[in-house]
Design a protein around this nucleic acid. Structure first.
Lengths: 162, 162
DNA sequence: GATTGCTTGTTGACATGTCACCAAGCTAGC
DNA sequence: GCTAGCTTGGTGACATGTCAACAAGCAATC
């Protein structure tokens, strides 16, 4: 029976059991190591950062290779401020460009440049190979299905209105 | 049949199929959203950042609440530089302290202070609740087992000597 | 058609992370 | 013991991310 002085819950917290703790710690460690490795591969193969790749990838999937800044920020789960800063740097490297938005004078349209398109097209095969090598090809079909199912459930939960 | 000008693989890259892509995109999105939410919860409940929590957690699990800087950095997968910078900031807030290392005059021993111990003890129950709410309690037992198994396999792969 | 309030994108100050380098100390081979 | 090379932890310069504030434009209501 525990009593606590700081006004928190009076009941004993539900700690994680052994299996849950293994899953959580494993997830965290995989997340950290996978991030490091994929960032390294991407930089070595293409000279791009994770952030660069995500921006270019999203732009290249848009129909005319251009998106409103806010839309891009929402898709990427980035703040507008962070995206604006990052785009300024990518613009200086010639990977993207800004255009005025017809119909909304406040707006900024982000455009994939030719160099940007070339960069993502050259980077993509290496990146996919890296993702396969360090993760996807290590999993069974059942694990891939389980990962897809559980991650989509967690995403749905976190996306639901608070 | 594709030909390429930049000396890369001549074969068509093995893109991800639909199921693999769903798993990968889901994982990436879960990762991003979960990170944001858990960081927010941690800050709101305890005033700690993810990084603070990790440092305090690792120190509190060490036997006499102290660790060599290099050892801590290795465990956390951080660079020594990053850890040193972060510890300087945590030290200014009174959460940790530095001690000289008997037997190795270069060494720095990182010590959990009383305030640091109190901080992690108050933060932990809220943090576990947050982890459960946004992830663990949303998964079936099978999914927990699958996540533990696959993440440990990926970690083992990434930890093996290159 | 003016007032009021929201949205958009940018900026500057600051927090944090990365990178290359350094001084001091250890260590192994001679 | 001495020396050559490695390890340790720290530092400064710089890259990146966060946060609050802002100007400009839009929209809705009267």
């Amino acid at each position: 029976m525990s009593t606590r002085g700081y006004g928190g819950p009076v009941t004993e917290p539900r700690w994680l059991d052994e299996k849950q703790a293994r899953a959580w710690r494993g997830y965290r460690r995989m997340r950290a190591l996978l991030d490091l490795q994929i960032t390294r591969d991407l930089a070595a193969d293409s000279g791009l950062s994770d952030a660069d790749y995500d921006v270019l990838s999203n732009l290249s999937e848009a129909s005319p290779h251009r998106l409103r800044l806010t839309e891009l920020a929402t898709t990427m789960l980035w703040s507008k401020s962070r995206l604006s800063h990052h785009l300024t740097r990518m613009q200086q490297r010639g990977l993207v460009d800004r255009e005025e938005c017809a119909g909304d004078a406040r707006g900024s349209i982000i455009v994939l440049t030719g160099a940007g398109l070339r960069a993502i097209e050259e980077a993509a095969p290496h990146h996919v190979a890296s993702v396969r090598r360090h993760m996807i090809d290590l999993l069974t079909d059942e694990e891939i299905a389980a990962l897809a199912a559980l991650s989509h459930r967690v995403v749905a939960h976190l996306t639901a209105a608070p």
